[in-house]
Design a binder for these strands. Structure first.
Lengths: 215, 215, 215, 215
DNA sequence: CATGAATGAGCCTTCATTCAT
DNA sequence: TATGAATGAAGGCTCATTCAT
């Protein structure tokens, strides 16, 4: 009886026309967020780019955050995949190059969304939660490896694997941000080499021998 | 009506009463920004905390950005000092521990301002410029050292010093952010040890020998 | 392009399928208005309950008001019938009990519509006109009786029959509203007895003798 | 720290200028509500009449409902006073004339607000609660009297005093509404006489003798 | 007949900033 | 210097209604 109805009970958008419009809105949002940032983007900026009316937006998304959520989900999925990729224990350098290179590539391709995501994370809980979860995934995975290397070395006095892992992930992540979002100039392959060099140096320190060999 | 008002009316706030008010506003702003963030803080939030009227704010600061600029300047100065501190070339480990530890300490003490600064940097050019300059300072300094170490090793094939330096600074910086702002849990000394371990590992890689010795 | 559409396209809804849909819409509207009130009910709330699409509504009704008009017409017809029912002049008490009891019963059964009708009457002229006409019917009829009773008493100094009648009808009507719509708790038979008592008392006053006898 | 600030923390309006503006807003609201009703009145309609800007309204009232609440409070206070007035048990007719006449006068003077109040009561809980409380006050008071009269008569078989009282109050109230708000034409003194006649007739029925004598 | 996507006018509310006192 | 009232631009969101399929 007293059932509450939301604007979402309006449309399912299963038709091809509806799907088309949703797609155009997403693309328009991607452009708008990229150009104007999270705070700078008004719903108006999105619908103008999409060539639809203001009201149409609300047939598809509850608000500005909802559409960003969808865009972010795509990037997030790619990171999850990267973080879950198998790892060649016999070729640590190769594995590092692959994962770090992949990370930089995804980050650069989605730079606009990454920037917006991080902006939004400052004011909307859902985005910061997703960011934290995303980061967690990498840190935990890295901590496993770091812990294993440290344990194999037989030395007991090193710093916690979680802390080392947090530092390594922070490096890659923020380097990617400075490069892809802030526009710091680096050659992509130099970047991978540098990050692998640092990461490898850390592993060598922990292992006590050259677990990551010079190329 | 015929009372003359001079431009000195809105003056330098050198009187002790004016200075008092300005101080209270700055402290109130620090609190407000810390609690509500950059986008979340309205001028109202500041004046309420300062116990002054709305209009008074504009006697001292042009707008919300102006007061943050002052607060940020303090933190920035500390970073400049850190980045310019002398460097003991004979005790690289000790020097690293000192600078990195100092950085973490400043960051944590000023966590609220750092958070706000970075938020504001996403939408106001002046803050992002200051951030870039601040970061540049560290990166250049580190690049000098990294370059020197690499040059001493006699090897020509390593990655650019600027890129390696960017990665190392990104690591410390973003680790500090995750720790002090996002609330990731790490012991302070473990954090320093971890960061020094990674940084030292990188230098050792570049040097080709143990320039940074195990503790 | 060259397909011709005739006005018959939007036609009389005489087909069994059309009639079905119209019926479902009316029932859905009855539910929706009952649950959400006049201002609170959107076309969406009706079509959702009816299980038809948004556009379909407008194939049957011009707007929200049109469908309420139909629902209200039913209730109105019942009141007209009540107001026009024959009146047993020899058993005034019995006649009063019958009409007042009938009024309460109709009012309670249609409480949801009555509530909505009166809400809509505050902002749409057509509904308030209908309300006025409906009320007029009762008042005029009662005024006839009151006038007759007063005239029979031979006294000339009483208040106008129209005014007394207006008061009596207002009593029954608003009591019914408070009971059926606002949820004031009264036993149905006590209610009839109370209203008849007051009404009868008034007639006795006017008649100057016990035209309405104690039960 | 995380204290929430509302728009109400903005101004206290203790200055004469502020009080002036608040007064103008209230008068403007009275006019606007009177002319346009509850649903029909936009904040814009109020500020235009008051000759102030849109934003100014929100310096004084949280929203449209807040300003009506203040206006309604005045009328409500008058009803409370009426309902609490002393009652001359020796001159029931005089007492009835006084209270009923007073009620009609207040109702007519505040007709615009009464209309708006009742409109708003259909959709905002606070207004309907106030209405219920207001009505309750009268009904309870009347029920006491009706109960006393019934008890004095020694007859046990009458309807509940609460139900009779509800009917009597409903009569006066809705008659006043039809007269003052809907514009039904009645002479004020005839109206009082009619209502007293009915009310008195009811008391006489209950008492079993002429407790309310013919004038 | 049914569908549901598209439209856009319209209202509410916030808040940075100005300015007369 | 301090005050706080006034301003008004700006943006979010709703929902009745239209219309092509």
């Amino acid at each position: 009886m007293d059932q509450v109805t939301t604007s979402a009970d309006r449309a399912l958008h299963v038709s091809s026309r509806g799907a088309q419009t949703a797609l155009r809105l997403r693309q328009a949002a991607r452009e708008a967020f990229g150009a104007l940032g999270w705070q700078g983007t008004r719903v108006q900026d999105i619908v103008t780019r999409a060539g639809v009316s203001h009201g149409t937006f609300y047939n598809y998304y509850e608000n500005r955050a909802a559409i960003l959520t969808e865009l972010v989900a795509d990037s997030h999925a790619e990171f999850v995949e990267l973080a879950s990729a198998p790892w060649d224990a016999d070729d640590v350098r190769g594995a590092l190059e692959h994962v770090i290179g992949g990370f930089l590539d995804v980050y650069q391709r989605d730079a606009a969304i990454m920037r917006t995501w991080l902006q939004a994370a400052r004011e909307e809980r859902s985005f910061s939660d997703l960011y934290r979860r995303s980061r967690r995934l990498f840190v935990d995975r890295v901590a496993d490896h770091v812990g294993a290397v440290g344990a194999a070395s037989g030395r007991q006095d090193g710093p916690p694997a979680q802390t080392v892992a947090s530092a390594l992930v922070a490096m890659v992540e923020h380097f990617a941000y400075c490069w892809a979002v802030l526009g710091e100039v680096h050659d992509r392959d130099d970047a991978v080499e540098s990050l692998v060099l640092v990461w490898g140096g850390a592993l060598n320190e922990l292992a006590g021998f050259e677990i990551v060999k010079r190329p």
